[in-house]
């Protein structure tokens, strides 16, 4: 991009600026299959209009199952959207909605390693698309909660039936949500925080 016109690069609106007292930020990731509502959840709780950070990937990295023209030689751009919640004058929380295709997640260094935890969004019409996501979080030791996005035409299962199907240990919270509603998305984040807190309590006793 041409930075000579940098005067015109739009930055945060005055009301979107963080206070100078902001000392540190933490992050949470929202994962799940294509179209499950990740972007919707980020947008419903964010205090800023969600932004997009991009990363490029060379041709060599594009797998056989890609949707991109296989003859294309150009680098693929992968976008990840994110939002922000100011917690206190010192502390800020960022929410990252990962791209639908999981093999792109690793384009962003340390996205999972440093995250406090994750929300796995699940669509009961395509339950199995979330299986690999959960496995990868388990392998990496990233604590997560499961939120079932209730789409109108989706099959309804009993929560305990879903817990069994998803092979979740009894302590992992699983709940229904509507990612379009701020209060519902906020409840999911609260549940994640309470879960992380209970893990921290356990850690304190062992």
């Amino acid at each position: 991009m041409d930075f000579n016109g940098s005067d015109t690069i739009p930055g945060p609106r005055a009301e979107d600026q963080l206070p100078h007292t902001a000392q540190a930020a933490a992050k949470i990731v929202i994962v799940g299959g294509f179209g499950v509502g990740k972007t919707t959840m980020v947008g419903s709780v964010s205090e800023i209009t969600p932004l997009t950070t991009e990363e490029t990937m060379t041709q060599a990295g594009i797998g056989v199952d890609d949707n991109f023209g296989s003859a294309s030689k150009t680098a693929t751009t992968v976008a990840m959207d994110f939002g922000r919640i100011s917690i206190t004058e010192q502390l800020v929380l960022y929410l990252f909605g990962t791209p639908g295709q999981q093999r792109f997640w690793f384009l962003w260094n340390g996205l999972f390693e440093g995250a406090l935890g994750a929300v796995v969004l699940v669509d009961t019409r395509r339950l199995e698309v979330s299986f690999d996501v959960m496995g990868r979080l388990e392998e990496r030791g990233v604590p997560f909660v499961v939120a079932i996005n209730t789409f109108p035409d989706a099959p309804r299962y009993d929560i305990e039936e879903l817990r069994t199907a998803l092979d979740l240990t009894p302590d992992i919270p699983i709940m229904e949500c509507d990612a379009r509603r701020r209060a519902s998305s906020r409840d999911v984040l609260m549940t994640l925080m309470r879960f992380l807190h209970s893990l921290a309590m356990q850690g304190a006793h062992t």
Binding site: H197, M201, A204
Partner: peptide, 15 residues
């Protein structure tokens, strides 16, 4: 490995 509980409590209050 050992989460900071006061941090998590601050986040919960913020949410």
């Amino acid at each position: 490995a050992r989460s900071d509980r006061s941090l998590l409590e601050a986040v919960m209050n913020g949410l």
